[in-house]
Design a protein around this nucleic acid. Structure first.
Lengths: 122, 122
DNA sequence: CGGAATCCGATGCGATACTG
DNA sequence: CAGTATCGCATCGGATTCCG
């Protein structure tokens, strides 16, 4: 596949759009080990509000990456889990995470170097 | 590495932040085959404004992923190319792109199914 | 051509409060 | 507990214009 074809392919754009939403990949990753309730996800992830978590889960559900299971009764009890399709995305996400683990320090070093040359620039 | 450690690792957040900027991955990919001038990048990518392209390139430069080469003279002639660090990110990006190529249809099918059930919802 | 400056509408996310 | 409603701030991205 040529570069142009790759970029023109709406499926590629679609994948980048998926990952370009801040919390999508993080939430998918948090679900990697099994079903989770929203409250557990929020503890596990940290720094995500109830509203944004709900929005993110809805979006992932809309794209067929997670399933929502509602257990009847009070108090409400809901669980989310990855679909088969969602699990296939863990590989690419892991590739990104592994890259970050290996090269993250170099990126931060580059940022510091840029800041040193041009303090205040960015 | 546990899920929690992965999520807490600021390097992982850094990588997701890199990909969460809409055009970063696309521009990096467009540079995969060699140095490019801005005008060529815009033709190759399509749908990106001059301003946003410049911002994206600055951001990538700041993170040490691309180099900017200015050739003196008029008219202005500038080229951007991937750094060694930038090339290491092509692997993970390719993993995402390959996923999109394989599973993109299923995602779009899931979207259509969701739209059919709840027309207007999203 | 490269890119900086400006304006502007759309969207994102967070905080808070509230419902069932 | 799960989710929604509302508000406000910040940011993003597009269009346009102007400069070297």
């Amino acid at each position: 596949m040529t570069t142009d074809a790759f970029l023109a392919d709406c499926r590629a754009r679609l994948a980048f759009d998926l990952l370009s939403h801040t919390w999508n990949a993080v939430v998918l990753w948090a679900l990697r080990e099994g079903p989770r309730r929203p409250v557990a996800l929020r503890e596990q992830i940290g720094g995500i509000s109830s509203k944004v978590l709900t929005e993110t889960l809805r979006r992932l559900q809309y794209n067929g990456l997670v399933d929502r299971h509602e257990h009847p009764g009070a108090p409400p009890r809901v669980e989310y889990e990855l679909t088969a399709l969602g699990r296939t995305l863990l590989g690419p996400i892991d590739a990104v995470g592994a890259w970050a683990f290996t090269y993250g320090d170099k990126v931060m070093a580059a940022q510091e170097a840029a800041d040193t040359e041009q303090p205040g620039a960015r």
